[in-house]
Design a binder for these strands. Sequence first.
DNA 1: ATGCCCCCGTCCCGGGGA
Length: 256
Amino acid sequence: MHIASWNVNSIKVRSKLVLDWFNKSNCDILLIQETKSQDHNFPKDSFLTEGLNVVFHGQKSYNGVAIISRHPITNVSIGLPGDALDDQARYLEATVEGIRVATIYLPNGNPAPGPKFDYKISWMKRLFKQSYDLLKTEMPIILGGDFNVIPEDIDCYDPAGWEGDALTNLQARAAFRSVINLGYSDALRTVHQTGVFYTYWDYQAGAWQKDNGLRIDHLLLSPEAADRLSDAGVDSEPRGNVQPSDHAPVWCTLSD
DNA sequence: ATGCCCCCGTCCCGGGGA
């Protein structure tokens, strides 16, 4: 079972690239972020005509999440519980082949401090609660997405330069670790304890060419999922495409 | 110190992204 997460930065611009990557990488479940597409504008036919299944939760202009799957998608749950007033489309949960998956677009939080950073932290507290509640199901769970958190300095091309940013902020890192400490595993770091892996390169200043990257997209596995983990990595190739997303897919493989 | 680039939309600029 191949599961990946990819911030595509507009599904309308990238639908062909996404479909091509999905097929080429033999993906079973793809968790997508930043679709930037309202539900009635989501290019679902691009995937349905290929016999794939797709669910999505979007809003105008910003955010938006989706799941594309080779297998049926059931028990879809829209939105992260805990704040009825939160209208940003950043969370979508569903079950595929007995695995509970969540596609997550965590708030960036800059500038920190400020209201956007407060929203990030409160969102992470809600994610902690939901992550805890999900463990009680004893299902294999995969929380995948753009967490907008650089977990460790090694995950950043210039830690000193990023000090004070909402992506390296200690409170944000601690909130990320709090989910890990519930019993979730960072799939990439479980397979590769050392080594530099990036999932994002800015469009500006030749960041891709200079390999000025960040690791901010993650797959967090519950114990029942981690027990089945056989491989994980980042496929940076799509970042070198013509008209690419600024993120690359992070993926993992679970044994059946 | 700032912007570089890219995407969106009652759209040719400004907001948001990271």
